[in-house]
Design a binder for these strands. Sequence first.
DNA 1: TGAATTCCTATCAGATCGGTAGGAATTAAA
DNA 2: TTTAATTCCTACCGATCTGATAGGAATTCA
Lengths: 151, 151
Amino acid sequence: MLSQRARYAIRAMFNVAPRAEPVSAARIAAEEAIPRKFLEAILADLKKAGLVESSRGALGGYRLARPGDEISFADVLRVVDGPLALAPCASRTAYRQCDDCRDVETCETRRTLLAVRDATAAILEGRHFGPSGDERPAACAMPPQDARVDS
Amino acid sequence: MLSQRARYAIRAMFNVAPRAEPVSAARIAAEEAIPRKFLEAILADLKKAGLVESSRGALGGYRLARPGDEISFADVLRVVDGPLALAPCASRTAYRQCDDCRDVETCETRRTLLAVRDATAAILEGRHFGPSGDERPAACAMPPQDARVDS
DNA sequence: TGAATTCCTATCAGATCGGTAGGAATTAAA
DNA sequence: TTTAATTCCTACCGATCTGATAGGAATTCA
């Protein structure tokens, strides 16, 4: 599950993306119904990660640090929620071996989690805040199956 | 991220799966290095969900409620960690509309999260507790790209 | 100078997570 | 019929995470 922070972050990015002028946290907060102080904290993280830039003082605010179509959902989610992978041993940079791992190379569970990570990353890296909207989600998405009962 | 519960649950299922006779929680706990009382709680959930059966008393223990190749990772993970989807609005049965959703049908964020859910579900539903081991992970997995920096 | 803004630090209540504790109920074997 | 092994039930607990809130210092522009 995405955290509330993550959902706010995505919404905020969509708010900032199309603008020519910097926009204040207060304004984003009002337009997106996000608690202002909470949003400030999120924007601080996005700034530290180099996704947005800020200017202080009157007329200050936030803008994208680079074109929207060069910033993906994956970029944002990693900043606020951390690695996409379902387990440290299935992460490609935040990799950490399981304490009790018998054999990293042949672990079938890990292999499965890596497949999930790669599929997830591929989709999330294909979705941008671009001015040009975006391509359809997914090379990788399956058509919903009727009998699929789940979540 | 998977919870510790989820990782324990998967390991426990792999321990139970190949056995002819019921196996006790104490034994699984010892073999898999899982705190016994904690494992008991997890097995109770798996039982309630109909994935394992139990018998009490001496010689009691747990066994699969149906053949291992009819129980998927997805089944187990949903029991212990809840829906696979990254957001309630992207879940196919635990669906819940976002409070502030402008238009469910056209929400591009939701569309993306649905794609992620479907890809994830497809992989996790394709991995079973065998006896026949299992098919390779993923129709859907992408080959790891060298320059991919992430997690 | 005044108003609008980012930025910094601190705090907090509630939920979740990972685990522990003790014992009642049940069952098979000795 | 006792004994040992087991599931099952209820309760608890500390640490961490989550989703905020509070107050104000520093900066910038009109």
